[in-house]
């Protein structure tokens, strides 16, 4: 069985974002990381491979990004992916990214394709579902647990107010959320050394164009200062919530 994990390269979640002329992200000083949900997907894929009870032969990390995204995909190799593919294209929108991913994945006989449910940059929650539709594969979204039994995969899928245990046949796309792995795995020194020798294929972009254009960016209005209430007078807070904020 072969697993592919699609990874996005995003600013660290603590980044205070800024924009140049309100039109492009100011990349100065930004630390880039594997998108947190994708990192959990990768962790689970590696766990499944490590469990000898599963016949998982390989975990391939795939990203769409320019040369500057290479440290992020190398990190995936250091964490434990066997090989990696970088599509040499700037990620313009979810559709363009999903289309580029589909081109690479087609014909490679992956059994499970994993994507995070959201990216922390454009928050589209779109790539995994789009990829599945382009590839005409089943998909299960909001997956918080995944186990393999033969070529049937058992998953927990979060629904409004609970969860469902579902099964699906491979090949399919798993769109995963928190819970799929406990903690993202951290690369050890040995892994970092080994990653330098692992194959990283760079493939050219197919030039598929985006259909959503991020025209301009702005920052939220600064919030009015917090109204502080004396801890000796909690009743005043409740009265403010009732009469001023009108939320009680």
């Amino acid at each position: 069985m072969k697993i592919a994990v699609c990874l996005g390269n995003v600013p660290d979640t603590t980044t205070k974002v800024k924009f140049v002329d309100g039109a492009t992200l100011d990349k100065a000083g930004i630390q880039w990381i594997i998108n947190p949900w994708d990192e959990l997907a990768l962790t689970r894929a590696i766990e499944l491979k490590e469990d000898a009870g599963n016949a998982v032969n390989s975990v391939t990390a795939i990203t769409v990004g320019g040369k500057d995204s290479e440290p992020t995909i190398r990190k995936a190799l250091a964490i434990g992916a066997d090989d990696a593919i970088r599509v040499d294209a700037e990620p313009a929108d979810a559709f363009a990214v999903a289309s580029e991913l589909a081109e690479v994945i087609k014909g490679k006989d992956f059994d499970i394709i994993m994507c995070g449910i959201e990216s922390s940059d454009y928050n589209g929650s779109a790539v995994g579902g789009m990829l599945a539709e382009i590839l005409d594969l089943p998909s299960v979204s909001a997956v918080s647990k995944m186990n393999i039994s033969g070529n049937e995969i058992e998953l927990d899928r979060e629904i409004d107010g609970g969860k469902e245990v579902v099964t699906v046949q491979t090949p399919f796309v798993a769109v995963v959320q928190k819970g799929i792995a406990k903690e993202p795995r951290i690369a050890a020194m040995r892994g970092i050394m080994m990653a330098r020798k692992k194959p990283l294929d760079v493939v050219p972009s197919t030039g598929i164009s985006a259909n959503a254009e991020f025209k301009s960016f702005g920052l939220p209005q600064p919030k009015a200062p917090c109204k502080m209430v004396d801890p000796a007078n909690v009743a005043e807070l409740v009265s403010l919530l009732q009469n001023e904020a009108k939320v009680l």
Binding site: D93, A94, F95, A98, I117, E118, G124, S125, A126, V127, G128, G129, M130, A132, E133, I134, S139, V140, S141, A142, R157, E158, I159, D160, V175, N211, A212
Partner: peptide, 19 residues
């Protein structure tokens, strides 16, 4: 919500729509 996130991106591709 989780249902919309599961379907909307697939639907966008199927309808040649931007999302």
């Amino acid at each position: 919500n989780n249902t919309g996130k599961a379907i909307a991106p697939r639907l966008a591709v199927k309808l040649n729509a931007a999302l």
